[in-house]
């Protein structure tokens, strides 16, 4: 309850900041983004985030799943190496690389973000699947479940809390990183921030940054609610810090 209150106040503050900066209209020589443009940017931003997240989930869960299989376990150390290296690559660089490979625009932004935010999902899917209680798996096998049945009826449901936590982490990461997409002409709130930065206009930077933060917070809360429903009832418990990995 108290947490909801804090979140609400935070959101209200960010929204107020957005409205205020927009209402400034002109600052010195420059014009702030008009409301219609701001809304369009927000919509674009949301689109980029959702599409990139969709890519990340669609690729991340199967990758995590494959890595968790016994015959691929040897790949797990490679995974953690790739994870830590990839996290040290700045988003900006990654987006830059993809824009060189695939050209400027929305498509390369989505792919770049998808790749960047894939890792929490892969890692959590993997962790969720390998951490399943061996006694539970043995019982499942001993009762005559086939390997796919064990995966779908036992392992996946048991990994669900961690997978959902991974998706949340990656979504929040996505919202922030998507701002960078503005740089390669993919639109979104990043464009407003970038313009603000190049004009050295703090108000305009805030005009883009405040709704970005608000979006991140709302999506996180929304996913928390969705996750609560996706997790089987017998497993529901408050998530611990380590469920979200080290990001």
């Amino acid at each position: 309850m108290r947490r909801n209150m804090i979140l609400f106040l935070l959101l209200a503050g960010l929204l107020a900041l957005t409205v205020w900066t927009t209402s400034l209209g002109r600052v010195g020589f420059f014009t702030m983004a008009p409301p219609a443009k701001l809304l369009a940017a927000l919509r674009e931003h949301l689109e980029i985030v959702l599409l990139a997240e969709l890519c990340a989930v669609a690729a991340g869960i199967p990758i995590g799943l494959i890595l968790s299989r016994r015959s691929f376990r040897r790949g797990a150390p490679i995974l953690s190496a790739v994870t830590s290296i990839a996290q040290t690559v700045p988003t900006l660089a990654l987006v830059g690389i993809f824009s060189i490979l695939m050209g400027l625009g929305l498509r390369s932004a989505i792919v770049a973000l998808g790749v960047y935010t894939l890792l929490p999902i892969v890692r959590n899917t993997y962790a969720g699947l390998v951490s399943a209680d061996p006694a539970v798996k043995e019982a499942a096998r001993g009762m005559g479940m086939s390997t796919p049945q064990i995966l779908w009826r036992v392992e996946m449901p048991l990994a669900m809390p961690l997978i959902m936590a991974g998706i949340r982490t990656s979504t929040v990461l996505n919202v922030g990183s998507a701002a960078v997409a503005g740089m390669i002409g993919a639109g979104g709130l990043g464009e407003i921030i970038m313009t603000g930065v190049s004009l050295r206009l703090v108000e305009m930077v805030l005009q883009g940054a405040a709704p970005t933060a608000a979006l991140a917070i709302s999506l996180d809360r929304l996913l928390e609610i969705v996750a609560g429903r996706a997790v089987p009832r017998g497993l529901r418990r408050p998530l611990r810090r380590e469920d979200f990995g080290r990001t």
Binding site: D133, A135, V136, A139, A140, L158, M160, P232, G234, L235
Partner: peptide, 12 residues
């Protein structure tokens, strides 16, 4: 088949 660790499915 029953084992000491029981291994009940916690999500069921």
């Amino acid at each position: 088949y029953a084992i000491q660790e029981i291994g009940l499915f916690p999500h069921m």
